[in-house]
């Protein structure tokens, strides 16, 4: 695909927007039944983000395969970031009362990493909508952003905050991405063998 700006069908939009809207609505409303609205809004929005990241990260390696796959990746990547912004708002401005409070509460390493994640991921989402072509620098930038986002989510859900639900989400994310990577390797291998065969003839 020379141009990365493709027409998104209403079905593609519906299939990605509806889960996003439902998950965020639930993440904001379900805490009404809990003891601590703000804490659970912070937790549930990161769960929603993780769920939306599973298709986004799994489709990333195949985004060149077809327009439809690209569109689904693009939409899930975008909506998962919007979901993350809800989490970011509650974590930084409600729980920690601002950037200074976040650094004080989380420590420089974790807070700094989170701010870097937010900035880099956001930049990539913006670029994905603004930059029509896909030059090499953007491919490398996106690969880096994707790897960074995956690493942070996998480490956070599996190691740093391993509650049963976050662990399940983290495992699902990791397995889905690993499977996706394995399939991508197999497909790429098959393609290069086929290409070699064609060249041999």
């Amino acid at each position: 695909m020379n141009s990365r700006h493709t027409r998104i069908s209403f079905t593609e939009f519906t299939n990605t927007y509806v889960p996003f809207a439902l998950l965020i609505a639930l993440a904001l409303l379900v805490p009404e039944t809990t003891q601590n609205l703000d804490r659970y809004r912070t937790i549930f929005t990161i769960w929603a983000t993780t769920i939306l990241l599973i298709p986004a990260l799994s489709l990333y390696l195949f985004s060149d395969a077809s327009v439809a796959v690209y569109n689904y990746w693009h939409l899930f990547w975008t909506f998962s970031y919007v979901a993350f912004l809800f989490h970011f708002y509650w974590a930084v401005f409600v729980i920690f009362k601002g950037v200074h409070g976040t650094f004080a509460g989380q420590g420089n390493l974790i807070a700094g990493t989170n701010f870097l994640l937010t900035a880099w991921w956001g930049t990539d989402v913006v670029l994905s909508w603004l930059v029509a072509s896909c030059p090499t620098w953007l491919r490398w930038e996106r690969a880096g952003a994707t790897l960074f986002v995956f690493s942070i989510f996998a480490i956070t859900t599996l190691v740093l905050r391993p509650t049963p639900i976050t662990k399940a989400l983290g495992l699902t994310l990791t397995i889905a991405v690993a499977l996706s990577f394995a399939i991508w390797l197999i497909v790429r291998e098959s393609s290069s063998v086929a290409s070699e065969l064609r060249n041999t003839r």
């Binding site: 939009f13 509806v18 809207a21 965020i24 609505a25 639930l26 904001l28 409303l29 009404e32 609205l37």
Partner: peptide, 24 residues
């Protein structure tokens, strides 16, 4: 159906986003 679905979840999302603002 898709239009109805998108509209319905949009309304739900709008309510969910408005509620915390209203609560304050």
């Amino acid at each position: 159906f898709q239009i109805v679905l998108v509209t319905a979840v949009s309304l739900l999302l709008a309510f969910a986003v408005a509620l915390p603002i209203l609560e304050r």
